[in-house]
Computed example of a mutant assay.
Amino acid sequence: MYDILVNTINFENWPRAARYGTQLASLLQASVTGAYVYPSPLYATPSFSSPELIEAVLETCRTLEAGALAAERPFVSWASGMGIEHAAWVVGQGNLAAALVQIACWHDLLVLERNPEHAWASPSDLAELILAVGLPCIVVPPQPVQAVSLSHVAVAWNGSSEAIRAVHAALPVLQRAHEVLLLRGAPKETFQEVTWKPPFDIDAYLKRHGIRARSQDLLTNEHGVGEALLEQADRFHADLLVMGAYGRSRFSEWALGGATRHVLWNARLPVLFRH
């Protein structure tokens, strides 16, 4: 993780995602980019608007743009004060997901926040972003994270491709952790044409990368996995939970619930999701 992208929902003060992502970049000796995206005035203007209303909307967008662009120096200076050698600030106009998909191409990790005060930062919108950007995403909870630490990291493990990708994406974090806990759920049922014999050995993989993890079984049924993950992560005093996202189809995940949805809606700690 050399380049961390942080989505900021405002630029007048640095929100939780910006603070967490910048502190994480400092811990990992990574670069950080703050990204502020605001909607196009075309979407903010009602149909059949008067010329006066259209001009008022355009002026509001011009003011917003000017303020966002002026935030570059304060952001870079603030990040530099936290030990970040390379910090950048970008401003985009348009659809948030489309903008982040583009800028994600030259980053390794995206930091978002779940914020009930902003409609577009709801869990459903965050889920769409996680699916769209193609990057590992850390979602910061509404509760303040007092100090960013990677001392205790919990990993949700069920042997799925999503879980494997999540562990691979989180390797730099896991290698810095003092303790890693594998929370083992029931192995995922596979319907693929290829069956590996023996199956993927997560313990051997982690040891090969210098990580020694202890394991704990999740004794729960499928519908209680999300709740059990958060409960055990809390008991472990985890600083971060790592998990694969959307192991089933999108339709069944949202129609039936699922561990991903429960954790995304209810987590009180930062969670690294990888689809």
Rank of each mutant, 00 (worst) to 15 (best):
T195Q: 08
T63W: 09
E189G: 07
M243G: 08
N221M: 14
A30E: 00
G83D: 01
T45L: 09
E65V: 02
C61Q: 14
R114I: 01
H262W: 08
S161E: 15
N115C: 12
F236C: 02
L174Q: 09
R176T: 03
A99G: 13
V133T: 07
L131K: 15
Q143F: 06
N266K: 00
L206A: 11
G226M: 12
L100K: 04
R62N: 14
W157S: 11
H168R: 14
E55N: 08
A177W: 10
L27M: 12
I211Q: 14
R165L: 09
R62M: 10
A154C: 04
F11G: 08
Q216S: 11
A121T: 11
L109I: 01
A238P: 04
A163T: 04
A56W: 14
R19A: 01
H107S: 01
S160H: 13
A30L: 01
H209L: 06
P199A: 10
L109W: 00
E12T: 13
E179A: 10
I84H: 00
P144T: 05
L171F: 05
A44W: 04
A99N: 13
E65L: 04
G94C: 02
S151R: 14
P74T: 00
P136M: 07
A245R: 03
V32L: 07
V263Y: 11
S151K: 11
D217G: 05
S215D: 01
L69H: 13
A177H: 04
T22N: 00
P144V: 04
F273L: 06
A154H: 03
L109Q: 02
N158R: 03
V111C: 01
R274Y: 13
A166E: 06
A119W: 15
L241Y: 02
S49I: 05
L181W: 03
Q93E: 15
G258F: 11
L135Q: 02
V6M: 02
T220N: 14
Y20D: 04
F273K: 05
T195G: 08
S160P: 11
N266V: 00
E59Q: 10
A121M: 12
Q216W: 07
L109G: 00
G185K: 08
D201F: 04
A245H: 06
E222N: 10
I84K: 00
V37T: 13
P39W: 08
R274H: 14
A154M: 07
A44I: 08
H152S: 05
A87M: 07
A30R: 00
S124P: 03
L230K: 12
L230G: 08
S40K: 12
L129V: 08
A267S: 13
V194I: 02
A97R: 12
A154L: 07
S26D: 04
I164Q: 11
A147W: 12
S161I: 10
Y43N: 09
F251V: 15
L219F: 13
Y205K: 10
I4D: 00
L5G: 05
L28A: 05
R248C: 10
V91E: 04
M243L: 03
S77C: 06
S31P: 05
G257K: 12
N95Y: 02
V194S: 01
K207Y: 02
L96I: 15
N10R: 15
P15F: 00
T33L: 02
L126A: 03
A255K: 13
K207R: 15
L264T: 04
L24R: 04
F11I: 07
T33G: 05
A147H: 14
V90E: 06
A56Y: 12
S161G: 14
G185R: 09
